[in-house]
Design a protein around this nucleic acid. Structure first.
Lengths: 133, 133
DNA sequence: TACTTGATCAACCATTTGATTGATTACAAG
DNA sequence: CTTGTAATCAATCAAATGGTTGATCAAGTA
């Protein structure tokens, strides 16, 4: 019974949701427009109940929303949550590339003075802390 | 005992790997430079064996690589795999935004002729197929 | 009211995951 | 050769996940 614990936990759920190939295909389908549970279940060889559970997972991750249209409950994609994921990934990806450029620059400098050392044996990272949020 | 079934499955593993908050923090740490298992295990309250398993998962997902330095086995981040993830997400995110723009355009056109209809009750998506790869 | 459709709820089962403890391999130093 | 350190392997266990079937709820319709 978790309602909305924190933005951190939301990220957890979002990644966890996309970890399943079925849910990823649901996302792919929803990117072309909203769909009902029955429509989403068709391409798969699983029951509607299973798809309904998957959608619950996606909903709790903030990736989709369910609206009401008579007795149908169309599912809509929420692209903002997808954007949050790419933002998380890109952050550390870019930091990593930055490190690479810094190492290149260091080696270029060192090359002028002495022979290039082993370059990468021990970590140059100073802080043990991370900043996950 | 799966070795490397396909590029499709690689994406599965990558998302699955990032689904765990511990592994995400490992990625965050590695973005600042390579580290050993012991260094990675320190900030967490779990054993080294558990961290070793996490790194195995990350390695099979292609997110990190392990090299050899005497009896140490430093772990390095592989940013290329992270890029593949953002590419996957961005694809469907952008398709979705495109749909939104198209809907806006349609509504703008319709507004000139008749009163705006319910707009979004049933899905306009034509193809049931998806293109996950 | 009764019936049909769309979707969820509830109980249950098989498999997988995350973590633990204990033993083992690989390498370096005494 | 023995000790110590870094890391993995192996067996085990509790908890979570994905799926199923059957019952239930909600809304439209004869």
């Amino acid at each position: 019974m978790i309602v909305d614990p924190s933005a951190d936990d939301r990220l957890d759920r979002a990644f966890m949701a996309l970890a399943d190939p079925v849910r990823r295909r649901i996302i792919a389908r929803l990117s072309r427009g909203p769909a009902t549970v029955n429509e989403l279940a068709e391409p798969f060889e699983i029951t509607k109940q299973a798809v309904s559970k998957h959608i619950q997972v996606l909903e709790q991750a903030g990736l989709v929303t369910r609206t009401r249209d008579a007795q149908r409950r169309p599912v809509h994609l929420d692209a903002a949550a997808l954007e949050a994921l790419t933002e998380w990934i890109d952050r550390y990806r870019l930091i990593h590339e930055q490190q690479f450029r810094a190492l290149d620059a260091l080696l270029a400098t060192e090359r002028g003075r002495r022979a290039a050392p082993s370059a990468g044996g021990t970590t140059p990272a100073g802080t043990q802390e991370d900043a996950e949020s």
